[in-house]
Design a protein around this nucleic acid. Sequence first.
RNA 1: GGCGACAUAGCCAAGUGGUAAGGCCGUGGAUUGCAAAUCCAUUAUCCCCCAGUUCGAAUCUGGGUGUCGCCUCCA
Length: 481
Amino acid sequence: MTLTVYNTLTRSKSTFQTIEENKVRMYCCGITVYDYCHLGHARTCLVWDVVRRYLQWSGYEVNYIQNFTDIDDKILNRAKQEGTSMAAVSEKFIAAYFEDMARLGVGQADAYPRATHTLNGIKRLIYELEQKGFAYPADGDVYYAVQNFPEYGKLSGRKLEDMQAGASGRVSTEDAQRSKKQCPFDFALWKAAKEGEPAWESPWGNGRPGWHIECSAMVREMLGETIDIHVGGSDLTFPHHENEIAQSEAVTGKPLANYWLHNGMIIVEGKKMSKSLGNFITIRELLDKYESMAVRLFILQTQYRKPVDFTEAALTTATSSWSTLKAGLLFGHQYGKQLGFADADLQDEILVSKFKLAVDDDFNFAGGLAVLFEIAKNLSKEGHMIIHEGTTKTEARELELQWRTLTKLAEILGFEAKPEQASTDSSEGLRDWEIDALVQQRNEARKNKNYAQSDRLRDELQAQGITLIDKPGGVTIWNRG
RNA sequence: GGCGACAUAGCCAAGUGGUAAGGCCGUGGAUUGCAAAUCCAUUAUCCCCCAGUUCGAAUCUGGGUGUCGCCUCCA
């Protein structure tokens, strides 16, 4: 079975083939660092990180680059508001980004280029575009002439004529006259600096780069002229990625990326989660309320291209689902020792191929998760058998096989259950003999039909995380947590 | 107005020609003093609507309805 991916450029699925054998050059459009990241950013970062992990597990060596756009009007505005510099705002939110991603369990990219570190590459690109007749200066600004790039619109599937027709009413003739642009869809490659704004020297005067050019420059610098996969949120398809293509391909004459992949948006009450609508929840707020792994499950449960509705109920549900998965993942930590688990390389090939079959189809993580749940449910059941009956139904070797497979597959998707949660260590709270004594007291009370007393004892123990299980024959066993 | 996507049980969701994965709830039974936990069983004759292609369609084609995204900053 081979990996198939949906390419925005061709609007179809095709077999994934790399430029260099077994090597993947992958670029993810990161964030503009002017505020804390919200759940929408989380989805993008998380999904593409998992895609990267999956590619690695599939045997590819992945060079994964994600940028920070740290020159931008919004950062500048924020700096003005807060009375600091653009650099200070960027640093603050880059640091926050790394904190949030660490909490989410998103792995680090291989490099995080920044616009401010890529000025030479940016200026070189603009210069080459100018030389080739794709860019023109106007009053200290430099614009890209979209009409000179015949393929403009190929990624987002639109034509300049259609856009002009459709945009009537949006692009007023008055604005067009005031603009320095030759065509309303031309976009800035370089913007002349205004008084008091950060600026860099250039052949066109002091100024700063426009929004799209930094990605073209960074991809070229870090990964080369043509890369394998370029990813980002679907809202970046137009104009950002379209413009990147125009900038890069006009200069190199080669495809910028062979595969363009876009993830769907997070929706809140029917509308896209976004800064401008103010309907966002930041990652840090979210993680104060829900487990990181539950958030991960919430996101990976849906195919990456589809929109996902954010509701509190959905996160609560995801938390319950995670408990099930967690129970399976903890199985080996809890019972592996007594069952004599030892062979770390054990793996159930049938389950692995089932997982691979699902996920190889355009990263169908939801399909893959079904395999994980199948295993987790069974292990969880076996765990209950150990607690209730003191024995398992399935032989230890088979359980180890299942558990190791589950752990491995979960790891690809970034799911991990911390063994501490399985701790039976009683360094705090009641000691075993104390519990036994209380359980005995309760059973005395039950024998005397003093149920108020017995229920009180049961509640007290429950409050300490100790669950009592009354078995037939008047035997009571207990377990922690 | 232009471009694109989606529509599957109570909710979430996979499934692209061969007769509906998985998750979360719910329900019935066992067990219990009652619970909890656990165990067993169970939950879409049907995939937005209509027409067509086919031996056969949730899956393909045409039409309709609805929802969303992009066209302005946006992950």
